[in-house]
Computed example of a mutant assay.
Amino acid sequence: MRILLTNDDGYDAPGMRVLRKIAEALSDEIIVVAPAKEQSGASRSLTLHDPIRLNQHSDTEYSVEGTPTDCVMMALNYLFKDNPPDLILSGVNRGGNLGEDVLYSGTVAAASEGTLLGVRSIALSQCILDADQIYWDTAEELAPGIIKKLLDLDWGEGTLMNINFPSVAVADVKGTVVTRQGKRDLSNLLIDARVDARGRDYFWLGYRPSPGTPGLGDDLHAVAAGEVSVTPLNLNLTATALMDSIAKSLD
């Protein structure tokens, strides 16, 4: 199995080192194409108005001066076009990608692009409660076994997997559960208005949503309970249940 590694925290991020160890437990054929610098919150943005530059670190490893989506596109359509990967692993993200995070996340975006291009893709994130205590070992030790089980299944078309590891030591993990995408309380967005030295206004966004009250079966609930959350995500966003009623209204 040929595995492509990418992320949104950057080529040299601690989570990439963890991802390498996870991949090495699954295969000895690993390629890396990751952003040259952090791209958190980039979602599925593309670099269309600036050149994309490649930095080659070896025959199988590159960093890209662009977004996570750029990285996957360059890997599959240019760098390794003649020998594409069988699996894409994106992460391990420094912090969870839960609830509405999946719409903003560059980690999930890289897995989405891989899925769109026909390669099974998995986003992996290590949740954090204390920045001074990150349980990277939890993702490193548990991810290979979970990935192996997922790869034995038929996901269907247009589906990726989003895995979040709780902020606890491996011994304290309560289990692994299948979850749906949850929803946070988004009322805590802070817009900090400031003025620069030339008298021009500028702003900092402080995005710190609270968990709210997640329901049983949500990804947010699972990691709060010390469980690994596995959420299958579909690329097709059509609200199918509404189509008939809308069609009747427009007839």
Rank of each mutant, 00 (worst) to 15 (best):
Met1Leu: 08
Leu5Lys: 03
Leu5Glu: 02
Asn7Leu: 10
Asp9Gly: 12
Asp12Met: 13
Val18Asp: 08
Ala25Asp: 07
Ala25Leu: 09
Ser27Trp: 07
Asp28Val: 04
Glu29Val: 10
Ile30Asn: 01
Ile31Leu: 09
Ile31Gln: 03
Glu38Ser: 15
Gln39Ala: 10
Ser40Met: 08
Gly41Glu: 00
Ser45Asn: 11
Leu48Pro: 03
Ile52Ala: 04
Ile52Arg: 06
Leu54Lys: 10
Asn55Leu: 11
Ser58Met: 09
Ser58Gln: 08
Tyr62Cys: 11
Gly66Ser: 04
Gly66Tyr: 01
Asp70Gly: 05
Met73Val: 15
Tyr78Glu: 15
Asp82Trp: 01
Ile88Pro: 06
Ile88Gln: 02
Asn93Glu: 14
Asn93Gly: 14
Gly95Ala: 12
Gly96Pro: 06
Leu98Cys: 05
Tyr104Arg: 06
Ser105Ile: 03
Thr107Ala: 07
Val108Glu: 04
Val108Gln: 05
Ala110Val: 02
Ala111Val: 06
Ala111Pro: 04
Thr115His: 00
Leu116Cys: 02
Leu117Gln: 13
Val119Phe: 00
Arg120Val: 04
Ser125Asp: 10
Cys127Gln: 11
Leu129Val: 12
Ile134Lys: 09
Tyr135Phe: 15
Tyr135Ala: 07
Trp136Asp: 03
Asp137Arg: 08
Glu141Leu: 13
Ala143His: 10
Leu151Lys: 02
Leu151Val: 04
Trp155Val: 03
Gly156His: 10
Thr159Cys: 15
Leu160Lys: 03
Phe165Pro: 05
Ser167Thr: 05
Ala169Lys: 12
Val170Asn: 00
Asp172Val: 08
Val173Asp: 09
Gly175Ser: 14
Thr176Gln: 08
Val177Arg: 08
Val178Arg: 14
Gln181Gly: 00
Gln181Cys: 11
Gln181Ala: 08
Lys183Ala: 14
Asp185Phe: 02
Asp185Lys: 00
Leu186Asn: 12
Leu186Gln: 11
Asn188Glu: 13
Ile191Trp: 03
Ala193Trp: 09
Arg198Phe: 15
Asp201Pro: 02
Tyr202Leu: 12
Tyr202Pro: 04
Tyr202Trp: 14
Phe203Leu: 10
Phe203Ala: 13
Phe203Tyr: 11
Trp204Leu: 13
Leu205Asn: 00
Gly206Asn: 06
Tyr207Phe: 09
Arg208Val: 07
Ser210Arg: 10
Pro211Gln: 07
Gly212Thr: 09
Gly212Ile: 10
Thr213Asp: 13
Leu216Phe: 14
Gly217Asn: 11
Gly217His: 11
Asp219Phe: 07
Val223Ala: 12
Ala225Phe: 02
Val230Ser: 03
Pro232Asp: 09
Leu233Thr: 03
Asn234His: 14
Leu235Lys: 10
Thr238Cys: 14
Ala239Ile: 15
Lys248Gly: 00
